[in-house]
Computed example of a mutant assay.
Amino acid sequence: MPKQVNHAERRAEIDAIVWEIIAEDGIAAVTLRSIAARGGISMGHVQHYFPTRDAIVRHALTSFLAVAERAHPIPDNPDDGLLVLLTHAIPCDESQQLGSKVWYAYLAESITDPDIREIVSKALRGTEDLATTLLDGDRTRARILLSAADGIIYRALVGIVTPQSAEAAIRELIATS
C-alpha cells in the first residue's frame, strides 16, 4: 500500500525552514537550494510543493500570518484585546524573536515586492481595522498606537530596549493616549 503523505504538513515543514532562513539570513537567502540544505531534503521535494522561489516566499508569509493569528488570539475584552494586539510581537522568547525577525523582514521586502506588499498590506489593514474596533471606532488613535508599538517592538528586536521595557512603554502608551 502506498505511503500516505500529508501535503499540508509537508508545506508547513517547508514554511518553518523558510522562516528560519529569513530570521537568520534574510529573505534574499531563501532559495530552493538553501531550503533543501537546511531541511535535509532534496530540491525536487521542495519543487514538488512549490514550483518557484517566489511561490515559497509568498506561501511562507501567508502561513506565518495564519500561525501568528492562532498563536495570539484576541480576547473579547477590548482593553485586553488591544494589549495583546500591540504586544504580541515583542521578542520575549526565542519563538517571538524568530516571529518578529520574519515579520520585519517581510515588511522591508514589501517596499519593493508588489506581491509581498499586497499580502502585508492586507494584514496591516486587518490589524488596523481590529484596533479601530477595539478603540470604539477611533481609527486615528488605532494608527498612532499601532505605529508606536511597531517602533518600540523594532527597538526591542535590535536590542535598543529590553522586551520588558518595550512592554512597559506600550502599556504606558495605551494608558496615556
Rank of each mutant, 00 (worst) to 15 (best):
G126N: 12
L82Q: 08
V102F: 02
G126W: 03
S63D: 10
A131C: 06
I111F: 13
I116G: 04
R141Y: 02
H88E: 14
A108R: 14
A105H: 05
R117Y: 12
R125P: 01
L65P: 02
D79C: 01
A105T: 04
I119S: 11
K122G: 10
L85R: 06
D136Q: 11
Y106N: 04
P73Q: 10
I119H: 07
T87K: 12
E109N: 09
T133Q: 11
R141F: 02
T62R: 15
R58A: 09
S121H: 11
H88F: 14
L134I: 05
E128F: 01
L124R: 13
A105E: 13
T52E: 06
K122I: 06
I56P: 01
D93M: 02
P114I: 12
I90G: 04
D80E: 15
G126Y: 07
E118S: 13
T127M: 11
V67T: 14
A105R: 04
E109K: 14
L86C: 08
P91T: 10
A105K: 03
L107Y: 11
G81R: 10
I116T: 15
Y104K: 08
T132M: 03
Y106S: 04
P91H: 10
L134N: 04
A71F: 01
E69T: 13
D138K: 13
P91L: 08
A108D: 15
I119D: 12
D54M: 07
T132V: 02
P78D: 04
L98P: 01
A131M: 01
D115C: 01
D79W: 05
A66Y: 02
K101P: 00
T52P: 06
L135N: 09
L86D: 04
A105P: 02
A68P: 00
E118W: 04
T52A: 06
A131E: 03
L85I: 06
E118M: 06
W103R: 15
P75Y: 12
E109P: 01
L135V: 05
I56F: 02
V102T: 11
L98D: 01
G99M: 00
R58G: 01
T62E: 15
E118P: 00
T62M: 09
L82T: 08
L124G: 05
